[in-house]
Design a protein around this nucleic acid. Structure first.
Ligand SMILES: [Zn+2]
Ligand SMILES: [Zn+2]
Ligand SMILES: [Zn+2]
Ligand SMILES: [Zn+2]
Lengths: 161, 161
DNA sequence: CGGCATATGTTACTATATAACATTCTTCGC
DNA sequence: GCGAAGAATGTTATATAGTAACATATGCCG
């Protein structure tokens, strides 16, 4: 399975499926995917990158929204708290989830060359943090797992230079 | 081995050892642990918590330094880039390293009750992020691993309430 | 329709971090 | 010791990220 965003994956399809999944989730759980919220999600899905709140704000303006910071942050709050979007802590930036709906603790690989962000399929309870936590009785409620580096393509480019 | 900061560990000793280790490192590598830098490190070591840059700034003022933001950030730059301090990304805050000198990718457990931060002894190359990265040829250069939750003591307290 | 809950618009502000340049302190060759 | 070069600090101003508070609008239900 090498179907990550780093090799040529069918992004149109991936994007459409994610949007559909969110629509389904909202219908099922009585959530309102309003125009602002949907636009923020679409912007993030389209880029497959981590965007800052103020980048989103600019895009919202371009799409004709009145856009003060709270508008972007409120849309993000909604999307984050329902698991449709994740925050990349090391960049204060936001990225669309690849498996929206499925409850999961996310992990990421972030390329410093092209800024693409790949979401890991799932975290492993055998990971050393989790093992250490169990050993000392620390109750983990939220994890931040982010690996920064170079994707295969960007690594090749850097080696050639 | 339950010698974490969450159970009663000899903090005076732990603090002293860390400071000594940093002194030794600086001597060995020709680094200058100036008064500001040393004070920032001491403040962080003393609290065993993650402090924001502006918290540090206040403490520096209390210790008689002239203190504008760049003063704190420059001291932090020095301490971060030499591995004496780590940044807790999910809080935009900084914590002293427990094994300064030894090169290591850090991981943390952060209690949301008492704010204590425990640094994991070491990360495991078998952790799922690393395995996934190897599989697709992603070259990891930096990892952020942070687990937030409740330490044993704070969990007990919350259950009683 | 009226009333309640939810979502958005808007202003102003707090918190985090850096750019740029002036000044002082160290080091080291002379 | 003296002066130049580099390193560290002082200082002002500004960039970037995030929130509080209150006004207005919109959807939903009886
Ligand atoms: Zn996800
Ligand atoms: Zn790349
Ligand atoms: Zn460390
Ligand atoms: Zn605690």
């Amino acid at each position: 399975m090498t179907d990550t965003i780093f090799d040529g994956h069918d992004h149109g399809r991936c994007q459409g499926m994610a949007l559909d999944a969110v629509d389904a989730q909202c219908a099922a759980r009585g959530l309102r995917l309003t125009p602002v919220r949907r636009d923020v999600l679409e912007i993030l899905l389209k880029s497959h990158r981590a965007l800052g709140a103020y980048d989103l704000l600019d895009e919202l303006k371009a799409r004709g929204h009145k856009a003060q910071p709270p508008v972007a942050y409120r849309a993000l709050d909604f999307l984050l708290s329902n698991g449709f979007v994740h925050k990349i802590e090391q960049r204060n930036a936001y990225v669309a989830c690849c498996q929206p709906g499925k409850a999961h603790a996310p992990g990421f690989m972030i390329c410093r060359g092209c800024d693409l962000v790949a979401e890991l399929p799932s975290p492993d309870p055998q990971d050393s943090v989790m093992v250490a936590a169990r050993q000392i009785g620390f109750a983990v409620e939220r994890t931040v797992v982010e690996a920064e580096g170079l994707c295969p393509a960007c690594k090749r480019e850097e080696e050639e230079a």
